[in-house]
């Protein structure tokens, strides 16, 4: 198996927590992993992305080749669109619909959503609202991870284990909220794919 994932967002939105969740699950599944991150200047509110590659065979490149990502996970609707040149023909765009506006010329949200809906394989969800419902508005990235999970070739239980490990230090309540967020995201995608 091989899953190539682009994670997209804005510096400070914490896309690396999604990467960490998948990474832990991949390691638990004895898979090979490479994950290229953006550090430095762009983290100051610029567009950031991470290339996450999981495979049962050794992985050569840290970067995903153009047109070959199985999945784009975006925590913000405009940012996912930026990486469409990386998406395979049969790849999926899984995106949060809540815009992150820190530039003066951010387009109308409707225009952005229209562009998302023009992608044949897309899942668009209001992860912020779903996270709030799960118990913490801070868990929207975990909702996104759940929404992406049907497209990642790792057993769901391993992702749940990853969440337990990631948030274990913060206590059972935090773990439970995040597991709930993860499951809510997954359920949405299962229904809407």
């Amino acid at each position: 198996m091989k899953t190539d994932i682009i994670l997209a967002g804005v510096g400070g939105q914490g896309i690396l927590s999604i990467a960490a969740g998948i990474g832990l699950a991949a390691v638990k599944s004895n898979l090979h992993i490479k994950q290229a991150e953006v550090h430095g200047m762009s983290q100051r509110g610029g567009d950031v992305q991470s290339h996450l590659r999981i495979s049962d065979k050794p992985i050569a490149s840290d970067l995903i080749p153009n047109g070959s990502a199985h999945l784009i996970i975006s925590v913000e609707p405009m940012e996912g669109l930026r990486y469409l040149p990386f998406l395979r023909k049969d790849g999926w765009l899984v995106t949060n619909t809540v815009p992150f506006v820190n530039i003066t010329d951010y387009p109308e949200t409707e225009e952005v959503i229209k562009a998302v809906e023009a992608i044949p394989n897309h899942i668009a969800l209001n992860a912020d609202a779903m996270a709030k419902e799960a118990g913490s508005s801070r868990s929207s990235n975990i909702v996104m991870l759940g929404a992406a999970s049907p497209f990642i070739d790792i057993p769901f239980e391993k992702l749940e284990d990853g969440i337990r490990e990631l948030f274990g230090r913060k206590g059972n309540d935090v773990v439970d909220v995040n597991l709930k967020a993860l499951r809510a995201g997954r359920e949405f995608s299962m229904k809407n794919r």
């Binding site: 509110g45 567009d47 070959s68 669109l81 930026r82 992608i119």
Partner: peptide, 17 residues
Amino acid sequence: VYEGMPIPNVVRKRPPS
């Protein structure tokens, strides 16, 4: 090389700030 889908026009630059 398959270049994927083009970036839609709606996408704006987001420089660091």
